[in-house]
Design a protein around this nucleic acid. Structure first.
Length: 641
DNA sequence: GATCACTTGTTCCCG
DNA sequence: ACAAGTGATC
């Protein structure tokens, strides 16, 4: 199939695919076919004979990368097999390893699992303003300290930033590890300071999807790699929802001024949504003030108006049951479960809906806790496996030493670490000496006790004859929390039978790259952030209450800041409602259901971060989201559920 | 008397 | 889930 098959010359899609300007920006609203246009552009390049290895498609998620690959294979474009879509993270890791950029900094590429961050935070947060502040600061560190679109990446902004960076890196060096998010600042520094590095000339064509979600450091990496490359960026400032990683809608807006002479093409026809949803989306997003070029989506008449409902329940319990019953009913009447998408901004709302659906025997998948490593027990056993493979895995040891303590035994561990740093002994060796009484450090009793437990367990594993027995002991068959991890471990055993280290490497990479199912057959429940890039014939957004969607900014913040936060919440809701897909020829008009409730237990409200307007007898009283009113006249009147 | 583990009040999430 | 407050322990 040729890249231009079925495209009308002069149509925006054709223009995007064929544009020969070395700088091209595509602004594409939700459902306007940007992935389709990108795919055609890549196909054209491959047909022209551009080497697949010199094309870099950057996507926001691994799923999107695999989608692109699959679609190109489906088009049967020559060379598509070698074409690899990449997330910036995976690119960063690959470059840091292959170009020895990491080795030059004396760092070790042992990434920290999410759960392994806990002891790190416990170890450094006391001296740096508490856990919450430190977490925020680490986010800024991962953005190379460029918090604003106007910031230059690579420079700390305050003495506190500098102090945190010193202590963080010192911890990471001592533990011979790195943060996953650290790949971005490290790659930024590398390409910034080594303009002659191979990576800066490796690609002749760079395509970036979801550009509005790149922070300044990520934008900088693209720019530094594209001196001699043709660049095409695609995105939508109205869908910028990642301010918590310091991305800003101004990034994609200013790209045009920073790249003089660039071509600019807009995709405005919403091919996905029912026309009323398009009208509602346009009305909603027009309430945002920070929009230098107000745009609107064009509805596609043949999609039909769609079916839209807004329902308010008395209590959160009724809302959860109401949504579950609605879904059960739809499925009973022939809607495939995979056609239903439930969005809820907090798991306190999403998880009960999930549980209710499971009880009703509707096939459902929750995306709140998707990892094999979400359960505490799975984390413990995985850490033990790491330590079984290497006693010198300092992160795994640190994690296990802190177990069953609410501050991860930070004080005692600090003494141990100080001892290690002054003598050069590794933590494992020092602990062996402490345990045998060869040396003594005050206040380390409970740490040593914990160490002895770890040793006992490892000795038991060592007594087992083979790796398969170790897997059986560590990840027994009868435990639901361990099921997914066990499945991956068994899968790994088939590939690597003997060597421990190879086994762990293989297992770790399987965990990092979960298989993405091509066919969705379950009802999906997730947050609005996760729904980006998805679409579904039935979309339900639950928990549309003031305080949750939008979440209300802290009153102590400056007005401009509060305004910006509300506008991002509005963009989030805009992303949510535009997930609805109309396929009239298949009898799927596209259905959007927005629900809210009047009351929920105060404890749940607090857990979800809602500051209720009023509370009485343990109940929080809630109002429907302000966004309902902003949906304009195309939205139906809310009804009681 | 410094530092520990554990209990008691408040509660900024989202990939 | 976190930060601050409490008797208990080194």
């Amino acid at each position: 199939m040729a890249w231009s098959d079925g495209l009308n010359q002069g149509s925006p899609t054709y223009e995007i695919a064929s544009c020969e300007n070395a700088r091209l920006r595509v602004v594409a609203g939700p459902g306007t076919g940007k992935s389709y246009a990108m795919k055609r552009r890549v196909a054209r390049l491959l047909e022209l004979g551009v080497e697949a290895s010199s094309i870099l498609p950057v996507t926001f998620t691994r799923v999107a990368a695999e989608d692109l690959h699959r679609e190109l294979v489906g088009m049967n474009v020559q060379g598509c097999d070698e074409l690899e879509g990449r997330t910036l993270h995976s690119l960063a890791f690959k470059v840091l390893m292959s170009e020895h950029a990491l080795a030059a900094t004396g760092r070790v590429a042992r990434p920290l699992n999410e759960f392994e961050l806990e002891p790190l935070l416990a170890d450094i947060s006391d001296a740096h303003g508490g856990k919450r502040i430190v977490k925020k600061r680490i986010k800024a560190f991962e953005a190379a300290w460029a918090r604003l679109q106007s910031d230059e990446p690579g420079y700390v902004q305050s003495a506190q930033d500098a102090a945190l960076e010193r202590e963080l890196i010192s911890w990471l060096i001592f533990h011979e590890s790195m943060l996953i998010g650290e790949a971005i600042p490290l790659l930024y520094q590398y390409v910034r300071n080594n303009p002659a590095a191979p990576i800066c000339a490796e690609f002749s064509h760079i395509l970036v999807d979801e550009y509005q979600d790149l922070n300044k450091a990520e934008q900088g990496i693209i720019q530094l790699m594209s001196e001699n490359a043709e660049v095409c960026i695609v995105g939508d400032d109205d869908q910028s929802i990642y301010s918590f990683k310091h991305a800003h809608p101004d990034g994609i807006r200013q790209w045009l001024t920073a790249n003089a002479g660039a071509a600019d093409i807009e995709l405005a026809e919403c091919r996905r949504c029912p026309t009323r949803v398009v009208d509602m989306g346009n009305a909603l997003i027009s309430h945002n003030q920070d929009r230098p070029v107000p745009r609107a989506l064009n509805p596609r008449a043949q999609n039909g108006p769609g079916e839209i409902e807004i329902i308010q329940y008395n209590t959160i319990i009724n809302e959860i049951n109401g949504v579950a019953a609605l879904i059960e009913n739809l499925v009973a009447n022939g809607t495939p479960p995979g056609d239903i998408l439930v969005l809820a901004q907090r798991s306190v709302i999403g998880t009960p809906i999930y549980e209710s659906l499971v009880q009703r025997e509707v096939p459902t998948r929750s995306y709140y806790a998707e990892s094999e490593l979400s359960a505490a027990d799975a984390q413990r056993r995985f850490a033990l496996l790491k330590l079984f493979v290497s006693r010198e895995d300092r992160v795994a040891l640190r994690w296990l030493l802190g177990l069953n303590s609410n501050n991860w035994r930070a004080g005692a561990y600090r003494r141990l670490r100080a001892h290690c740093e002054s003598t050069g002994a590794s933590p494992w060796i020092a602990l062996e000496q402490l345990s045998s009484g060869a040396i003594a450090i005050p206040y380390c009793g409970s740490l040593i006790q914990q160490f002895n437990l770890i040793c006992e367990y490892l000795a038991r594993l060592e007594a087992l004859p083979g790796l398969a027995d170790v897997v059986n002991e560590l990840l027994p068959d009868n435990n639901a929390d361990l099921r997914d991890l066990r499945a991956l471990a068994l899968q790994t055993l088939d590939i690597v039978a003997g060597d421990r280290e190879e086994f762990l490497v293989e297992l770790t990479s399987l965990i990092a790259k979960p298989e993405v199912p091509t066919e969705v057959s379950d009802v999906r429940i997730m947050s609005l952030h996760k729904s980006k890039g998805l679409s579904s014939p039935v979309t339900i957004i639950a928990g549309c209450v003031q305080g949750l969607l939008p979440r209300l900014p802290d009153a102590s913040l400056p007005l401009a800041e509060r305004q910006a936060q509300i506008e991002e919440q509005r963009r989030l809701f805009y992303v949510g409602i535009t997930r609805v897909k109309s396929v009239p020829e298949d009898g799927k008009p596209g259905r959007l259901v927005l629900t809210s409730s009047r009351q929920m237990p105060v404890a749940d409200a607090m857990k979800a971060g809602i500051q209720p307007a009023q509370t009485y007898m343990g109940n929080a009283y809630l109002n429907a989201s302000q966004f309902f009113r902003e949906l304009g006249p195309s939205a139906p009147a809310p009804r009681q559920g």
